[in-house]
Design a protein around this nucleic acid. Structure first.
Length: 199
DNA sequence: CGGCTGATCGTG
DNA sequence: ACGATCAGCCGA
């Protein structure tokens, strides 16, 4: 159905972070298909953003994907145990990305429960590491095209109106003044957010 | 090479 | 509040 197209991704990370709320993330695997609604995101604005992996223009084998043209996935390992997924956005070279922080499970819930070894639907995808386990997103998905691969984004056919809340990004204490920027966005009153808001 | 660190999570 | 756990980055 309505997959997101190229122009959706060619925009500032802050704009795309807000536009992605309410959109559907789908992963088709041999085990089955999982489908979730995006309820929480964070914008990483690239080489000038002290919170970003691309700060100061640093390019490494890991971060190279961030410098691609918008519309691909940037997936990396964190704390030696978990994966996090970004949607790479904007034109090639800016290294902007949107971290997917929390999802509302829609389809493939039994499969996600099995992968997470967890029965509470509210806790299946309420964190960036958790949602990657639930949807089986790993470094295999690093660099894949989110318009044409088995991991993709689509419109919500029956989207209800919602309010967007802005907040400080999570766990980037090293980012100096950038840690206070309100570049985290989530759907107001959703029970599926990752951490409680502190303001 | 060797040492440090992290866009996290589950348990207690 | 804390430990798990290790790829990736950096300095030597």
């Amino acid at each position: 159905m309505g997959r997101l197209s190229q122009d959706f991704f060619i925009d500032d990370a802050i704009e795309v972070a807000k536009k992605l709320l309410g959109k559907i993330l789908v992963h088709e695997t041999p085990e089955g298909t999982t489908k979730c609604r995006i309820v929480e995101t964070e914008a990483y604005m690239g080489v000038l953003d002290k919170g970003s992996h691309a700060y100061s223009g640093k390019v490494t084998p890991r971060t190279a994907t961030l410098y691609e043209q918008g519309g691909v996935a940037y997936v990396y390992l964190i704390y030696g145990m978990y994966h996090c997924m970004n949607v790479v956005v904007n034109v090639k070279g800016l290294a902007q990305g949107v971290l997917i922080r929390a999802l509302e499970p829609l389809e493939g819930i039994e499969l996600m429960k099995k992968r997470r070894k967890m029965d509470k639907v509210k806790n299946l995808c309420n964190g960036p590491g958790k949602l990657c386990i639930a949807m089986d997103i790993t470094k295999k998905e690093n660099g894949v095209n989110l318009m044409s691969s088995s991991l993709f984004l689509e419109e919500d056919e029956k989207e209800e109106p919602f309010e967007i809340v802005s907040a400080k990004r999570i766990n980037i204490d090293y980012a100096e003044e950038a840690k206070d920027f309100l570049w985290r966005f989530y759907i107001k009153d959703t029970p599926y957010v990752s951490v409680k808001s502190k303001e």
